[in-house]
């Protein structure tokens, strides 16, 4: 398992609020420190999949347009970067995601995300084409060096468009 990258992930109350809204969760434990839910939980918490939003703080994250950089989404043309497609259709899809919680992050935590590569393997798709799987493991440690969340992600790259089930 080689280390791919490491970056700081400050956990902020407004980011948790926006994330909870986006996943349709009105639980006040994610939004209101004065709520009964937050008091019972010892303060505001982050929702279970919140660590995925660490992408906001990954300086090199490839699915965020970079100021002054090329972007493969549409503008005057359907794609702003035809080169992008040479890597295959789309940039790969998410196959599995697993979280293990040692505790749940809270606003004010200053997490460090350390991403390591895991296993890789290939499989023949049911409709032809080769599926290439790769695993990555991200450890989120807090300001005291304690492990908070371990995330394991499996991505799949396809040699053709994934058809609807």
């Amino acid at each position: 398992m080689s280390k791919l990258k490491e970056f700081d992930f400050p956990v902020e109350a407004s980011h948790i609020l926006m994330f909870a809204r986006a996943v349709g969760d009105a639980n006040p434990v994610y939004a209101d420190p004065g709520s009964e839910a937050a008091r019972a939980a010892g303060g505001v918490l982050a929702p279970p999949t919140f660590c995925q939003a660490s992408a906001q703080f990954d300086p090199d994250y490839f699915l965020r347009p970079k100021i002054g950089g090329k972007w493969f989404g549409s503008g005057a043309e359907p794609t702003g970067d035809p080169e992008y497609l040479k890597g295959g259709v789309g940039s790969g899809l998410h196959a599995e995601q697993h979280f293990e919680y040692h505790r749940h992050p809270r606003p004010g935590d200053r997490l460090t995300a350390t991403v390591r590569s895991g296993k890789t393997w290939e499989k023949q798709g049911r409709r032809g084409g080769t599926l290439s799987f790769s695993e990555s493991i991200t450890e989120y440690r807090d300001q005291d060096g304690e492990l908070v969340v371990t995330a394991r992600s499996i991505g799949v790259k396809t040699s053709q468009v994934v058809e609807q089930e």
Binding site: V23, D25, P47, Y101
Partner: peptide, 18 residues
């Protein structure tokens, strides 16, 4: 995840994978 935490309560999850 909202369904899961509505069921088990806040801060109770130890693992969640899909």
């Amino acid at each position: 995840g909202r369904m899961v935490t509505d069921y088990v309560g806040d801060g109770a999850l130890k693992k969640y994978g899909v």
